[in-house]
Structure formats: structure tokens, C-alpha cells
């Protein structure tokens, strides 16, 4: 199979701007992009730098952007790409060191910032911690994370907000918040409620889409938002207000009324900032009706919300079990 690779190159020692370089290769049909890049590096151009190691999606070294989206080169089968030219770029949201090698130090620092280790409470048991089998199994989905950085590369919030803790670190945080043995979940959630925390996620699904290990970081972020509200860690945060406003309005009218929604979900102080927008909209005849439209039988929606909410179960935590004096 013939393949055309268009590679984003950059050499800091030459102090040149990044440039594209195209390579034509003949490779076996079963080749992954990584196989092709290795062949390229070994036989055509030894100056090409990239990170790679395991070749089987487990070490997380070879994250890069392939045709515009982050992925592992070793997980990208060339025959699956269906494009004449494969564009290969370094990951986004990270400075480039050389060619496809990016500076991961900021990535690790974000990870360290969440205290990424188990913080149990009380005496260490003589044997293992006894916990429900499904609670450990549930963690597999996040333990699967190989820290390749693909989600961080394509994260939209990070592209405009360097403070944002980011999907990898959030997935890690979720791993501890959900671990029955970790007793620091309240502190962890409080940190998640702060600047750069879970409310700064823009819900764009990029991390879910590009994760090569199906960790679904955004889903973990949304789950932690729910915990923040359920645990009462946050009430004043606009994110929490928004959840409540949405449920209240949809529960009342069956549909969303944007102006009431906005008033309920941002604080009084901030409302002023939106006044201009409201005025602009009003002048263009865009304001929603003063008396909200209500769907027939809207009460049923509230009833659904009440009933589903009653099935809510708190996550299983050993230290709380211990406090409550109950046994597993």
C-alpha cells in the first residue's frame, strides 16, 4: 500500500518556523501509523523525532494529531483512514519540543496538583480493604487511562483557559473520589469546585471522542458535578444554580425558558453583565415570551424528576461506613 504522510516538523535548534514535510512510503497493508513513522525514521529521515514505545496502546507515548484529531499512532491503522494524505502533527495545547515531541511538563504538573494518590482514613487493615466487587470493577474504566495526553491535546476549554485542570487529571480525580478506600473525597470535590475545576469544562465531548482507551473523561467530570451538588459542596456556584434552574423550569413548564433560566443560574452581581445582551436581544425581538409557554401535562415532568431522583444512591465509602458504625 502506498501512503502519503504530511508531517508537521519543527526544529528548535534551527530556530525555524514549523513547516510541513511530505513523505511517500510503500508499506504493508496491516501497518499502523506508528509502523510507518518508524519505517520513515529508520530508512528515510533519521532526523524525525517522536516518542513511541510499546506499540500496543498501553504505554501512552505516541499521542499525536492524525488528520486533525489526537490519537495514538500505534492505534491508527493506515488502511482505516480513508484519506489520500495522512496529516501528522504534534498534540495540541502543549508546546512543541521538536517535531512530534511535545513538552509534557505542564501536563504532569496538572496531574500532581490533584494529589493523585489514595488517601485512606483510619488504621490500615491487616488484610485487604473489604469493598464491593463492583466498586473495584467500576474503577477499571478510569484505571484504563494511560496518560497519553490525547484528551488534553484536543480539550477546547484548555485552549482558552490554561488554568483548567483538564480531562486527564479529572479522570484521575474521579478514580479516587469513587474509590471506597479514599477518604479525601470532600477535599477533592472542593478543589474541583474551584477555579479551573469541573465547572470550567465546556462539554464539547472532544476528550470522549479522542480517548484511545474509552475513559470518557467528560462523563467523569459530569459525574463529579453531580456529586458536588448532591453532597452540598456547592450551592452558590453558577454550575449548581444552573442544574437547579434547569430542573425547576423544565419541571414546571416542561421546557426551558431562557430568560428565567439565566436569572436563576447566574448571581445578581453577574446579571448586570448580561443586561446588555438582554437589551440587544429585546431590541431584535428575540426575548422569550413574558409568560412562559407551558407544555400540556407539564406536571408529569416534575413527577418524573421526583421519582428518578428518589432512586439516587450515594457512592460507597469505607470511612463513612465506619462512622455510621455499619459493616460492609
Amino acid at each position: 500500500m502506498d501512503v502519503q504522510l504530511k508531517v508537521r516538523r519543527q526544529n528548535p535548534e534551527a530556530e525555524g518556523e514549523p513547516y510541513w514535510k511530505e513523505y511517500a512510503l510503500a508499506v504493508p497493508d496491516h501497518f499502523t501509523l506508528l509502523d510507518a513513522l518508524i519505517q520513515l525514521r529508520e530508512e528515510v529521515d533519521e532526523t524525525l523525532s517522536l516518542r513511541c514505545s510499546c506499540r500496543s496502546h498501553i504505554c501512552g507515548s505516541c499521542g499525536m494529531r492524525v488528520n486533525g484529531h489526537a490519537n495514538l499512532a500505534c492505534k491508527t491503522k493506515l488502511s482505516d483512514l480513508h484519506t489520500d494524505t495522512v496529516t501528522v502533527e504534534p498534540m495540541g495545547n502543549m508546546p512543541v519540543i521538536k517535531d512530534l515531541v511535545v513538552d509534557l511538563e505542564p501536563f504532569w504538573k496538572k496531574l500532581y496538583s490533584i494529589d493523585p494518590y489514595l488517601q485512606p482514613a483510619g488504621e490500615v487493615p491487616e488484610r485487604e480493604y473489604v469493598v464491593p466487587a463492583d466498586s473495584m470493577l467500576h474503577l477499571d474504566g478510569v484505571v484504563n487511562c494511560i496518560m497519553c495526553g490525547a484528551c488534553v491535546s484536543d480539550c477546547e476549554s484548555l485552549s482558552v483557559n490554561p488554568l483548567f485542570i483538564g480531562p486527564t487529571a479529572f479522570a484521575k480525580e474521579y478514580r479516587f473520589v469513587m474509590d471506597p478506600r479514599d477518604a479525601a473525597d470532600t477535599q477533592r470535590l472542593m478543589q474541583m469546585n474551584g477555579p479551573g475545576g469541573v465547572w470550567d469544562c465546556t462539554h464539547c465531548f472532544q476528550c470522549v471522542e479522542v480517548c484511545p482507551k474509552d475513559v470518557a473523561p467528560m462523563d467523569r467530570i459530569m459525574a463529579m458535578r453531580k456529586m458536588l451538588v448532591d453532597d452540598g459542596v456547592t450551592e452558590k456556584h453558577n454550575g449548581a444554580r444552573r442544574q437547579k434552574a434547569f430542573a425547576d423550569l423544565v419541571g414546571r413548564y416542561g421546557r426551558l425558558d431562557e430568560s428565567r433560566y439565566l436569572m436563576k443560574s447566574v448571581s445578581m452581581g453577574e446579571l448586570a453583565g448580561y443586561a446588555k445582551v438582554g437589551l440587544r436581544s429585546a431590541m431584535r425581538g428575540k426575548l422569550p415570551p413574558l409568560v412562559p409557554h407551558r407544555i400540556p401535562e407539564a406536571a408529569r415532568i416534575r413527577r418524573i424528576f421526583e421519582r428518578t431522583r428518589s432512586t439516587h444512591r450515594r457512592r460507597f465509602k469505607l470511612h463513612q461506613q465506619a462512622q455510621e458504625g455499619s459493616r460492609v
Binding site: E128, V131, A133, V328
Partner: peptide, 16 residues
């Protein structure tokens, strides 16, 4: 296990 490895458990919650 004490450091945080989420080893697979049996039905009773012990290491499997």
C-alpha cells in the same frame, strides 16, 4: 492493595 490497586474482588468483597 493498601496503596490503591483496585484488585478484582470476589462476591464478598475480598481479593479474587
Amino acid at each position: 492493595e493498601h496503596w490503591g490497586v483496585n484488585f478484582s474482588r470476589d462476591e464478598a468483597g475480598h481479593l479474587g
